[in-house]
Amino acid sequence: MALNTPQITPTKKITVRAIGEELPRGDYQRCPQCDMLFSLPEINSHQSAYCPRCQAKIRDGRDWSLTRLAAMAFTMLLLMPFAWGEPLLHIWLLGIRIDANVMQGIWQMTKQGDAITGSMVFFCVIGAPLILVTSIAYLWFGNRLGMNLRPVLLMLERLKEWVMLDIYLVGIGVASIKVQDYAHIQAGVGLFSFVALVILTTVTLSHLNVEELWERFYPQRPATRRDEKLRVCLGCHFTGYPDQRGRCPRCHIPLRLRRRHSLQKCWAALLASIVLLLPANLLPISIIYLNGGRQEDTILSGIMSLASSNIAVAGIVFIASILVPFTKVIVMFTLLLSIHFKCQQGLRTRILLLRMVTWIGRWSMLDLFVISLTMSLINRDQILAFTMGPAAFYFGAAVILTILAVEWLDSRLLWDAHESGNARFDD
């Protein structure tokens, strides 16, 4: 018995066209964080690309023209004298008006014999932002004059995390709450300039795509075929072959399989920071003279006294001054041990922890910024005066060393310790 099946006739004509040209192939790229070699397709503007294995951002879609970056830099340069030299806060102490600005706080630190601690604050609040705007201006002028731009481009990517104007702005709020127990506070004209400078700096850093600047100024022929001998440069993120001198053909720094002496430098910085954190938390970090009496505060006791007036601000200072430094030390110690013992479990967790400490590390400088600003506000000789204690130097040095330890660690070593050939990683 035959089955009668109805015929289905399409209502619209289906047209099949042959592909007349070869589909576009992607360029081969190595991930600078996990060293995976993959094919990167062509990316349009405002599109980002991520590593298929570790999800690290390979290409950032946010990109401004150099002219727009230069305009932002010149605007920031105009704001800087007002943000640093004009009063941020006014207080009335014992019937006398006192003005506080950024430069005055750094000068008070240096004047009291601790120039190293003052230079830490100076670099993060004044030096690094000033280098940022002058570097962008150098790129703008240098591109037109045919100057060598490689050193500036190499420095810009590392400079971003040292620009800490946003953290200093939080420190202004913390210092205001600490001082309000002794005097009446009012915002100064410099505060508005400083807030504007923070906003412009944040926007500029978020749109400063150094890798795209490398592509514009020093374009290189990408690798179009897969080759395990391809290496990625950690300076400019170019994937290719080393030249005859073993250097990256684009930025001219040595092109090595792994960062040289990464573990040794990381261990040295980490152990030194552990040693410095002990006096930083045991010795007094601030000293207040009130009517001839002397009151010393460690980091913890200062947080407890701050909690009596504002528990939320005390929580912020606790996280930045105690929780973050010790968390960074514990995480980095764990990561280094996992590399030495070739741990194969929990790779995803370790990668996330490394990215976390990379982002939060700079916030530990908050305590030094609060001390710097408070020193310029309260300084009335023996009637009422505020000065920093010996722990300030140890704390600042420990924070900087932990930042350097994270920067010096080559994250690809975590993958080397893991089993080879993993296309995915999980716990």
Rank of each mutant, 00 (worst) to 15 (best):
I383C: 02
P284H: 05
A268Y: 02
L354S: 12
T224E: 15
F82V: 08
L335D: 07
D35L: 01
M304K: 13
I19P: 11
Y182C: 07
I185D: 03
L278N: 09
S309D: 08
I383D: 01
A320I: 15
L200C: 12
V329P: 08
D243A: 10
L213M: 14
L384R: 01
A2W: 11
W415R: 11
F341V: 11
K178D: 03
R30F: 05
E215C: 07
A417L: 06
T15G: 14
E21P: 13
N310C: 05
I126K: 14
P222Y: 06
Y28H: 13
C343H: 15
G188L: 05
I172D: 01
S45C: 11
M388N: 12
V313D: 07
F425T: 14
Q264K: 01
S308V: 12
I126S: 09
R221K: 10
Q104S: 15
I116N: 08
S39Q: 08
R225V: 08
S305M: 12
I322P: 01
P87S: 06
S308Q: 12
C34W: 00
V133T: 03
R221N: 08
S176P: 03
I311H: 12
I106H: 05
G188Q: 10
D166Q: 15
V198L: 14
M80H: 08
I303D: 10
C251M: 00
L255Y: 10
A223G: 12
L368W: 02
V189H: 13
P219N: 10
L404T: 15
D297L: 04
L337N: 09
F122K: 07
P151V: 03
N310E: 15
A175H: 01
A71M: 05
P81E: 13
G188K: 11
F38Q: 08
R250K: 08
A183K: 01
F82T: 14
A183D: 01
L205Y: 15
V163Y: 07
R380E: 00
R380F: 09
S411A: 07
R62C: 13
W359R: 13
F318T: 04
R362G: 02
A223H: 09
L373I: 13
T201K: 12
D227R: 04
G240H: 07
A314S: 04
L165Y: 05
I58S: 09
P41L: 11
L276D: 08
M109R: 02
V170T: 15
W92C: 04
L373S: 04
V399H: 01
C34M: 00
F122T: 13
V152P: 04
P325L: 01
V324H: 15
G293E: 03
A397D: 04
P390A: 09
M375C: 08
L414C: 12
V198H: 15
R380H: 02
K229H: 05
M365E: 04
S372Q: 04
Q33L: 13
I351T: 08
G26H: 12
N291H: 14
G246Q: 06
A392C: 08
